[in-house]
Design a protein around this nucleic acid. Structure first.
Lengths: 224, 224
DNA sequence: TGAAAACTGTCGGCCAGCCGACGGACGGGC
DNA sequence: GCCCGTCCGTCGGCTGGCCGACAGTTTTCA
């Protein structure tokens, strides 16, 4: 969870546990391996759990009638709690440390140093949620997509002759789900921008951004 | 912050401080009086504060180009933190206790009993935010409004001959802002439902709900 | 108690973007 | 190589609901 709905600021939060009780299991945590596709949590089965991703990749999402909205991807080092009624699914084989909330609360009480870390994590999730709400209710799809791409540039972009090269391990469908829109809309927009020379494709798994400024303009203003 | 974006479950969270360090100022907190209309926080001026409402009524909201989205109303006993980039405005004269976050963190460290309370509050805010996201991206306006009204019935409804009487201190505009829609749409919907006998008005500050089941149906399904 | 200000109801125009559909491109197994 | 499953591009129709406008109503407060 970070700006623009995609994971990964080196939190340091998780590192606190991962390294401090170094190597072995932190007390009270249970290790679990998940095969790709496993559902770890659903809004129905409310078992309050806190967990810590050691490796792999999980997707946190909400589901409606005929659409899904991805809230974030979790990767190694991320921490999450099933307090909130979301689905959590392993999109790749993953291993994680789990603990149930009451036990975890006890940990918190006994080790006061952990508290601020936990607060920071919750705070980050909240800020992220608020950001999403803003996007959904104030910004139209082109603006959201532009921001999203800018975020990618900022986070993963590599300079190259004609601009920035961005690795793109997500498909159109996935991006749409992060932005609360549809495959088709995302696809059309990107191709339109390609025609306008703002971006260009380089195979399916990579994107070149030529004119970040253009994206920036699109991201703040409404439609043209 | 509670189901359906409107404040007030007897949290007990705030009571913890309000009563425990009874009467006087909890250590480190500064008392502040706000006149109606004062802006306590904006996304720009990021002074991290935690505060506690003693009396009055505040509105927490986001603002876009030409629309505002109310996240929640805070009333006596509520606690909030300006961690998240929102506006907070006194919609009535209010008095509250403030403390800045670092000092507050210290409090937390010294009094471990406070931690779970704080976690619960943050958790509640998060759950609420997720709920709003769900509404915004999956449910259409009629469904959102129906849920909202049901929430009111559940929380404030009083039985009467013809159904439930709900006090309504919010105007159409305010409701719209809570639901992420417009004055006009809310107004039309309510009046349409009135014509269908599902609800009826009783002056501006009160609403009668005759057929909660009808609302319930509307709240789960999409349009007719 | 009367004028001004703030709310409310309703209508029609308009458009972002959802949906279904379909054909083409890629990619991996065998 | 060939087949099949998945992903991508594009089109047209359709509609929820936003927006502006305006007339009526209630509230405020001088």
């Amino acid at each position: 969870m970070t700006p623009h709905h995609v994971a990964k600021p080196p939190t340091g939060a998780a590192a606190y546990w991962l390294n401090a009780p170094a190597g072995g299991a932190p007390p009270g945590f249970e290790r679990r391996q998940l095969a790709k596709g496993t559902l770890l949590a659903t809004p129905q089965a409310r078992e309050d759990r806190v967990f810590l991703v050691q490796s792999g990749r999980l997707r946190v999402y909400l589901a409606g009638e005929n659409r899904e909205l991805t809230l974030s991807f979790l990767e190694a080092g991320d921490i999450y709690t099933t307090h909130t009624p979301t689905y959590v699914e392993a999109v790749a084989a993953s291993t994680l440390w789990l603990i149930d909330t009451p036990a975890f609360a006890q940990q918190l009480a006994s080790d006061p140093g952990v508290t601020p870390v936990m607060m920071r994590v919750l705070g980050r999730m909240l800020a992220n949620a608020v950001h999403l709400i803003e996007d959904l209710s104030f910004r139209e799809v082109p603006a959201r997509l532009a921001r999203f791409l800018l975020g990618l540039v900022e986070r993963r972009g590599q300079v190259c002759e004609a601009g920035w090269r961005v690795p793109l391990e997500l498909g159109m469908e996935d991006i749409a789900s992060l932005l609360g829109t549809t495959r088709q809309t995302v696809s059309s927009l990107i191709n339109q921008w390609a025609r306008e020379g703002i971006v260009s494709r380089e195979g399916r798994r990579s994107l070149l951004v030529h004119l970040p400024e253009a994206l920036r303009a699109l991201s703040s203003k409404a439609a043209c």
